[in-house]
Design a protein around this nucleic acid. Sequence first.
RNA 1: GGCCGGAUGCCCGAGCGGACUAAGGGAGCGGAUUGCAAAUCCGCGAUUCGUGGGUUCGAAUCCCACUCCGGCCUCCA
Length: 541
Amino acid sequence: MPTMFYNTLSHSLAEFIPLVPGPDSADPLRGAVIRMYSCGPTVYDYAHIGNFRAFLFADVLRRYLEFRQARVQQVMNMTDVGHMTDDAVADGAGQDKLQLAVEKMKATKKSGQALVADPNNPFQVADFFAAAFLADARALGLAVVADYDRADDAAAREVVMPRPTRHIDDFIQLIQRLLANGHAYVAADGVVYYDVGSFGAYGKLSGNDLSRLAHGAGGRTNSQAAKRHPADFFLWKPDRAHLMRWNSPWGEGYPGWHIECSAMAMHFLGESLDIHTGGEDNIFPHHECEIAQSEGATGKEFARCWMHTRHLMVNGEKMSKSKGNFFTMGDLTGKGYDPLVIRYALICTRYRETTNFTLQSLHEAAAAITSLRDLADKLTRTVAAVDEAAGDGDTAGFAGVEPGRTAAHAVLLAADEAAMIDEFSQAMDDDLNISAALAALFTWANPLAKKGKLDYPTARSGLAALRRVDHVLGVIFPPLRALPPVIQKKVDALMHQRLQARKSRDFTASDALRRELAALGVDVQDTPAGSTCRPRLAPPV
RNA sequence: GGCCGGAUGCCCGAGCGGACUAAGGGAGCGGAUUGCAAAUCCGCGAUUCGUGGGUUCGAAUCCCACUCCGGCCUCCA
């Protein structure tokens, strides 16, 4: 079955064929090199789970392509240029968002918790939130951040998650190119604008057309004398008062908010990309403008496939700051949810559906992950026991290699496993239908989990299959977060206390202790051999 | 006003013309086991797919109308 993705550009499902396909025409993904650009976070504040849903969608997409044996070069920007809160006239009005962040930082400093040394320094503020983003993203298992962490120096990291403030020269060059070929102009107010009228394809992504943009009820109608068309957007704005500003041929100022993605994507990935991802809100105007800038400059198709994820709702409502109904990672981990639970809850529905996020969905996720992890444990123990007895230490072959890439692929799968992998893959080929893919996984996993004793070939094959799907899912094999040492001490003490209570058959005390332990984040299980405990993925209900 | 999506059991969510007596997950209920516990195991929950028409031998799946919900058109993932 061909790999079908919904392409916002064509408004339809179409087979995805890489620009540089692999050698096998029957399976163009295998061995392909796929260049993918993902619109990343702005680092003016903590990212919320709605943001992370979009990044996780890109992550699952990338991981699935790797599952299919493609090599993916993914670039995700971290926007640290202070863009404007009120860009309604496509002209940089309102307040600088980084300026707002700086004000907030100053406020927290006054209240005694200094988050950065100098809250007046926008670069420090941006660095602070960039670090916070990376920490959250690591916990969620974003592969692009793993790449970033593996990069050995700052320059190498820059390739993976570039920061616009370090690419101002690229922006200037791109703007000069657009000026030279007539797609941009310097207006009477000294601002450099993109001339949308010069780019006939403007609107091809979003379905907007210029006449409607000029006259529609949805804003952007403000006439600005300096611009040729109301939809013209600025590329560079001279402004000596702006918080972050740089020298340019058009005076000291700052870049427009669309130029960074065009410039950095082309800088690192070339003039044509395979896939460009983002949230649905990026379609217009951001991605529309990216296309105009990039294709206006190069004359080549900028991105072959545009993929957008729908918004996340919280408790049935759109997330918004005024309602205060958004969660950050810290909010949820603080309540006792493991990041892997959050990951699962955010990836387990198809990216093109509006999804409603609730705390209940986290508990469902915890239950689902727990059963898969229990199966993985059982398979691992079975394999390890035999390998140990045989003395070949072969289990290292599983642990040491990046999952999904080599070792797991090298293990020949039994018929059941192969069928599951095939079904999983077919579902994902259908525009990343992860619900159906998960159904295939559970349908295979449940009987295996219920079987009492497994033979070695079954366990080994099952483990390899689980590792392969988990290369996409990323929730079965990554370690859970560790209990803080202080809590661990308490847990040990309570477990001991409980053992005493059970010895004297004081089950009331034993159960009370179980609840205490649950509140601390561990689940207790009693077996004939004694009591054990393990970390909980979610707090008790 | 323009342009898009969506409505499936208690909840989430697949299915997109015949294998649907509707996947999978969660919650619930009954039983086994147990400490009248936790964990585990076995079993049970939609004659029905927003409403009304239509097409068809056959519709959750196609067409029309209606109702409701959501998104974008403006900073947002």
